[in-house]
Amino acid sequence: MNDDAERLNKLTMELRRGLLVMAVLEALVKPHYGYSLRRFLQDRELEVDEGTLYPLLRRLESQQLLASEWEVQEGRKRRVYRLSEAGETARAAMQTEWQRLNRALTQITENTP
């Protein structure tokens, strides 16, 4: 990978990292287990590898934004994640912030020659 591509890749990764938290909180309005969440995001064109998603889920859970419990579904043990009350508040706040940032970015783009 040349320097330009590597730099671009790093920038994209940084952008995605922040957005991924928001996407996960949004997706978990409906409970999901890890694999179904990954598929859900993938079907909506947001590819996330397991090495990123599972540690993120654990981090959000340790921050008490998510709650999880083991359930048996289709004869298989699955850890199901859902938004906690604090997670719901954070999701709403992030959504508002995202709208505000989006508006600001649109204004910046429109006003830049």
């Binding site: 287990y33 890890g34 694999y35 179904s36 990954r38 598929r39 397991e50 599972y54 083991w70 298989r76 043990k77 699955r78 850890r79």
Partner: peptide
């Protein structure tokens, strides 16, 4: 135990898919 169970479940789901 927790991580391994979750990883195994994920791998099984991926294989099924």
């Amino acid at each position: 135990g927790d991580v391994a169970d979750e990883l195994l479940s994920d791998l099984q789901d991926e294989c099924d898919y």
